[in-house]
């Protein structure tokens, strides 16, 4: 497969075209605006906690296929997990898209491995993750810087 085939895998194109959980969440317990200064993309991530667990995550915003797919898959994957578990997933995703060795089983998120060949696109893949992490840790604004 070419590097472009790796980048734009069918799962990514599907989530990019039809992002899941792209909706407003007025009753969220945490929310954060995330900015990618490189391209001007902006996502708003909202989270609702149920005790220790992430009960629901949603996002709003527009961006490239990588950014939208990353946000979409993130909202699906982290539901039901605790904040420390989220932080672990965050580190694993970041290592994956930077092409750094990781020890964790990536599951569905492995589709983002192709990003590593496109250094200028790493921030597209991490914007929603940065924003969700900042939301979970009480910040209201995040960037990929």
């Amino acid at each position: 497969m070419s590097e472009l085939d790796d980048l734009y895998q069918e799962v990514i194109l599907d989530h990019g075209r039809r992002p899941r959980n792209r909706r407003a969440m007025p009753d969220g317990s945490h929310r954060c605006d995330g900015y990618n200064p490189l391209c001007g993309d902006h996502v708003l991530v909202a989270v609702r906690m149920d005790g220790e667990a992430i009960a629901d995550v949603a996002f709003e915003g527009e961006g490239c296929a990588i950014c939208m797919a990353s946000a979409s898959l993130m909202t699906e994957i982290v539901r039901g997990h605790t904040v420390p578990e989220f932080d672990q997933a965050f580190d694993a995703v970041r290592a994956l898209v930077r092409g750094e060795p990781g020890s964790q089983e990536m599951g569905k998120l492995a589709v983002f491995g192709g990003v590593a060949a496109f250094p200028m696109r790493v921030k597209c893949a991490t914007l929603a993750w940065h924003t969700a992490k900042a939301a979970l840790h009480g910040a209201t604004e995040a960037t990929t810087e």
Binding site: L7, Y8, E62, G63, C64, A65, I66, M120, R121
Partner: peptide, 8 residues
């Protein structure tokens, strides 16, 4: 199609 995807 987002411009970043066009560019890549």
């Amino acid at each position: 199609i987002h411009p970043h995807d066009v560019g890549s």
